[in-house]
Amino acid sequence: MTPAPRSVAAAAALLLAPALPAGASTFGDVDRGAALWAQCRPCHEIGEAARNKIGPNLNFVFGRKAADVDDFRYSEAMQRARNEGLVWSLDTLDKFIAQPNAVVPGTRMGFPGLSDPAARADVLAWLRKNSDNPRDIPEAPPTAVGTDHSVAPEILAIVGDAEYGAYLASECLTCHRAGGAMEGIPSVTGWPQEDFVVAMHAYKDKVRDHPVMQMMAGRLNNEEIAALAAYFADLGG
């Protein structure tokens, strides 16, 4: 595997943009964008008191260098992109959310991409409005809670046995990459433990769709899920 040259090539592609979708030059509809934000909010928060979750908070993202949010542990790929000069603008964000893994190969962002240019323009319009004006978000802060499933507090409170987690995780690492690379299969490293636990229970309870994950989560008990969360929280770069 040679991630470094690919990343350089991708950064060059981003700057020159010969093969990737043409960058956006206009914002779309804020209201339609608000609906699309539902796809982002499992991982990202925005607004006053927004926290870093599976992904970094998106306050003031426009004009900011890539990998620049304090206290968020970025993938090596995203840090390289920053070092190569990636700055988030309407244009670069548009390309990135079209195909995250093509623009920053090895990013941990587990989102396949939004292929419709109009949809991207809409969500970027919403992002622009809220990112630079976090106070304007109509819901109570933090506006986007990164959960799609409710899990009882006593389950969230379980402290996982990381050693057991290391053994259990060996099963996950047949598909998910220990280094956090995302290639057809999402990255699960470096997640806040609560998000990890919620996601696994969502599969276990068959609220999230994926036959492999429903099967794998289905036979894990609460302690085992906590153990995995503890292990994966500290894994990856």
Binding site: M1, L173, T174, C175, R177, A178, M182, E183, G184, I185
Partner: peptide, 14 residues
């Protein structure tokens, strides 16, 4: 199919 490509990369790294 795309998942299978990811699996190949994952399992061979493992």
């Amino acid at each position: 199919f795309e998942e299978s490509l990811g699996w190949y990369a994952g399992i061979t790294a493992d």
